[in-house]
Simulated assay, not measured.
Amino acid sequence: MICRLCPRDCGAERTETKGGGVCRQPSLPVAARAMLHQWEEPCLVGEHGAGTVFFSGCNLRCCFCQNKPISQGDVGKPLTVERLREIFHELIDQGAACLDLVTPTHFTDAVLEALGDEEWPVPVVWNCGGYEKPETLRRLEGKVRVYLPDLKYALPEPARKYSAAADYFDWASRAILEMFRQTGPYRMENGLLKQGVLIRHLLLPGELENTRRVIDWVAETFRPGEVLFSLMAQYTPQPGAVGSMARHVTKAEYRAAVAYMENCGITDGYTQERTSAKEEYTPDFDLRGL
C-alpha cells in the first residue's frame, strides 16, 4: 500500500511484512501487548479493566513518550488480521469493559477488517494521539463508538519542538470535530462510557500557556454535556530530557491548570493525582496476550 492514512502524508510503500514512512510499520498489525488495563479513565475500566491492545509504531515523535520502546523502537509482534480478531474476543471473554485500541491509526485497514461487520458487545475505543486525518476517521463511522484522542497542543512551537508536528493543532482540532460528528454527545451507562468523545490533555512542565489554549478551544467548541475532558498530570521525564522537560509538573502548575479549566466551565471529565507520574503505571511490553 502507498500510505496516506495520517497527516504526515508520506506516501510510504508499506507491504504486509515491510514497514516504511514515519511509523515504520508494515500494513499488517504489529502489537506489543494485549491485556486488561487498569490505568485508563474509570469510565473505560469498569470492574475488570479496559481490553487494551498496544499497537507498535506511531505517526508522532514525542520526545516525552512513555511508550517509546513500542512507539519509536522495534518492540512488537506481527499479527494476522485473524489473530487480531481472536485477541478482541479473548479480551471480551476476560471481562473487558471496552476494546481499547492504542495508537491504531497506521493499521486502520487491518483493524477495520478485524472488526468486520460483527456487533461487538462492548464499545470499540479509538485511543490515538490526535494527529489524524478526518477522511481516515470517516472510514470508522459505525465501527468506533468511543474516541479517546489526545489534544496535546494548541500552539505550534511546542508541537514542533516536542513532537515534530508544527501543524498538530490544525489536524487534531478538525479530527476531534469529525469524531464528535460521528458519536454525538457522550453517553454513560452505570458509570461506563458507551459512546462519545473523551479528550485527553497532558500538562507539560513549563507549558501552562499551551494548556490554557487547549482548554480555551474545548470550552469554546463544545457545550457542557457534549464531550469529556481529562486533564493529566502524569508527565514523566524520559532519559536525555533537558530544561523544564527534565522535571515533573509542579503542584502549582497543575493547580493553575485545574483552576483555569474550572473557570472555563469544563466540569465533565477527570483530573489526575500527580502521583500518577510514575513509570510503574506503564505496562511491560513483553508481547503477552498476543
Rank of each mutant, 00 (worst) to 15 (best):
M261I: 02
E135Q: 11
E132F: 06
K143Y: 13
E273S: 15
P156T: 08
R174Q: 13
D286F: 04
L155V: 07
G130R: 07
V258G: 14
A97I: 02
K161F: 09
R247A: 14
M232G: 04
P224M: 06
G289A: 07
G57M: 00
K161W: 07
G49H: 08
G196F: 02
D100W: 04
L192K: 11
T271Q: 11
D167H: 15
Q195W: 05
L79S: 08
P149H: 04
V122Y: 03
N263S: 15
T108M: 08
W171G: 03
I215A: 03
C98I: 02
R24V: 07
K133H: 00
I199D: 02
L203Q: 08
G20N: 14
C98H: 01
E189L: 11
P283F: 09
L101T: 03
E47K: 15
V214S: 09
K77N: 01
Y235R: 07
L99G: 03
Q195P: 02
E262Q: 14
G240Y: 14
A172N: 15
E16P: 08
S163F: 12
T183S: 13
P156N: 12
T103W: 00
E16Y: 06
L115H: 02
A166D: 05
V125L: 06
R255S: 06
R85F: 06
A31E: 01
Q272W: 00
A154R: 13
G57W: 01
Y260G: 01
A96V: 10
P149Y: 02
E273L: 13
E118G: 05
I87L: 13
Q238S: 10
A277G: 13
L28W: 03
S71G: 11
R160S: 10
L202E: 01
R212W: 06
E16Q: 08
P158A: 03
L79M: 15
D100A: 09
E132H: 11
R85C: 05
I266C: 02
R4Q: 10
T236M: 08
R139C: 02
E209P: 08
R255C: 10
E119D: 14
T211L: 03
K251S: 10
N263R: 14
G196S: 07
V227Q: 01
C63H: 00
N190H: 13
Q72T: 03
E207I: 01
R138W: 10
I176W: 00
D167T: 05
L112N: 12
